[in-house]
Amino acid sequence: MDPATAETLAGAVETRPQMPAPLPPDERSAPLRDRILAAVALYPEPRSALIPALRLAQEEYGWLSTEAFEQVADATGFTPALCKSVASFYDMYRLHPAGAHEICVCTNISCALVGAGETLREFSRELGIEPGSTTADGRFTLRTVECYGGCGWGPVVSVDERYHEPFGPDRVRPLLDELRGQPG
């Protein structure tokens, strides 16, 4: 990393607010159908629950398979084709199986100006895969994403939906070592 970019990243560390500890994941004791019906009950019209329902199904299965769409359709009263059409519009729904850990590197302008490309290449090299693919052992999926809203604290990397900012190439190896040490 060149000294001027290092200076910007050091400034970002100072201005970024303290992030709270993650909340524990929601209880999954209730069956998926019941959780979808609970979401439906929050809205004046059931169709508004379709996007939350798709998220619940993805959390259940890791991705949205044909069976997952069938279940969302059954619980919400829409057709599977409509559910799939809606899901395909949004970036966060996975229409294919993904790795156990999803690593997203923002490459939009503010992150690009402070070296997101180098962070991305470092991930590619360490994982031995191109962006948009999954490692052969199924552990990691690497993706590029558009602006994640951390522009002043970039480059932004999100791991399993948690932001890490600013994320220079020097943080790639330690992060992967940590994730490899975890079960799953």
């Binding site: 508004s48 629950a49 379709l50 996007i51 809606v86 949004y90």
Partner: peptide
């Protein structure tokens, strides 16, 4: 007050697209 999470689409920041998305459709 209902807290509603989007699913990744820049266009949903446009107010009519936001409403369409909140109605469960493509934004």
């Amino acid at each position: 007050i209902v807290l509603h999470r989007g699913a990744g689409a820049y266009i949903c920041g446009e107010e009519t697209a936001l409403l369409t998305s909140l109605e469960g459709e493509r934004g």
